[in-house]
Design a protein around this nucleic acid. Structure first.
Lengths: 239, 239
DNA sequence: GTATGAATTAGCGTATGCGTAAAGAGGCTT
DNA sequence: AAGCCTCTTTACGCATACGCTAATTCATAC
């Protein structure tokens, strides 16, 4: 688990012309490889030797190895001694596991922020995200909807005062990201889901932790069930 | 987060005379350093240079670095360039964070196993642990009680079918381990706690997920509150 | 064709070397 | 005493070197 809150997912690749305070090569390798994994740029299941990755990112094997150790620890890739690294395929069962954890933890966040109350800015961020989701629904733009949905959850989670909680949730969220993107166009129009988000915002505004908790839990369970259904009915056993 | 289920915490140190299939030095370093951290053998707050650790474990800096990357990722230590590694002190706030996560996740496990039911062996393992806790109570042997308590939770968690869930819980459990050990003799005799464990076993046997969930959640919240009280009333702000 | 063993290849685990730049020491100025 | 420049030290980040051994290829036998 990573405790430090990681940066956004944007990547500045090799050399960052004006990109902050000179990250180390290890860090670059980690960021670059992780981005490629999340963006599904590595064919799932295929292997990449350390040297290939080193050539790809134009650095030596040492920082590559450090990045791989981290990525393997976080569950994104597997390191098989003499075969290289590969992006771990995610099964329907894996998704169920991930959603179970996210459900438990995010519901906790929902209850926490409902109990404490959010600043007007935080509430506004949530509302904006919901608005964008609704707009995307009207345009039938799945990608835009997913982006807004992600923004909503990210906003919510970032409002938690529990640093470790934020970190773990982000971690699992990222693991699910690839699959969510791949199944986006297979799911029904997420109208129900958008409404649930709005309900959650209301519960938070009403400062009703139990209600917020329940709404979010139900929301998550519904999403998990739907995803399981999509995966099985499309025979997607490994992504 | 580590996905692979880690071994038990026992360590075979440097060379393992008959210790399995020849672990790599990186692995040895990771295991050895982690054990020392968990057993509180590194003075919290003090720094250790990579070379010192390399000398200590009689290997080069390379495997040490890999181990440190993992440990830092898992939140046990911090790496400060030019100052070395240090065991992260844990504050009362940190413990609250950790317990919040453990509460949410372990309650999930309790509900899961109650819903599914456990094998007679699994139930027996839980009962045995509770018996040992009761015996330790009679002997007023805090250490033995803690060991049994740990066994109980470990058994429970290992009964979950959710591999990632098992892994995250173990991770946070380990983070709390040091502090729990240090505060053992400060807490009141854990009679209440032992009874709660027994109640949980009953709820599981009755296949009542909601009850199991609630019992465990309350159990955890009580424990968290008590710990917070102990830490603050003893002025233990950083362990 | 399949199976078995030897020979070869090459990927990785680890050690080591090197350049950089940060931390600290010492001395100088005010 | 406080600031600040210079010099020294040295820990680390990374590249590189190397040996071990798993993986693969090939030859030979069935």
């Amino acid at each position: 688990m990573v405790i430090a809150d990681d940066q956004a997912l944007g990547e500045s690749e090799a050399d960052s012309p004006r990109g902050g305070p000179a990250a180390t090569r290890s860090e670059q390798a980690y960021t670059a490889l992780k981005r490629r994994v999340l963006d599904n740029e590595f064919p799932v299941g295929s292997f990449f030797l350390e040297q290939e990755l080193a050539d790809l990112l134009e650095m030596s094997r040492t920082p590559i190895r450090e990045a791989l150790v981290r990525l393997a620890n976080e569950g994104f890739v597997e390191i098989r001694p003499r075969h290289g690294m590969r992006v771990l395929p995610i099964s329907a069962e894996d998704m169920r596991e991930i959603y179970t954890i996210l459900t438990a933890l995010e519901s906790e966040v929902a209850a926490e922020v409902a109990a404490r109350g959010l600043s007007p800015e935080e509430i506004a961020a949530l509302r904006e995200a919901v608005d964008d989701m609704e707009a995307a629904l009207v345009d039938d733009d799945r990608k835009a909807w997913a982006v807004a949905d992600e923004r909503f959850h990210r906003s919510l989670v970032s409002s938690s005062s529990n640093q470790r909680l934020r970190s773990v949730i982000q971690q699992f969220w990222e693991q699910a990201h690839r699959v969510r993107m791949l199944t986006l166009r297979l799911r029904p129009k997420p109208e129900q889901s958008t409404r649930e988000h709005l309900d959650l915002v209301h519960a938070i505004e009403e400062r009703d932790p139990a209600k917020a908790w329940k709404i979010h839990r139900t929301h998550r369970e519904t999403a998990a069930d739907m995803l399981a259904e999509i995966l099985s009915s499309n025979g997607l056993t490994n992504l």
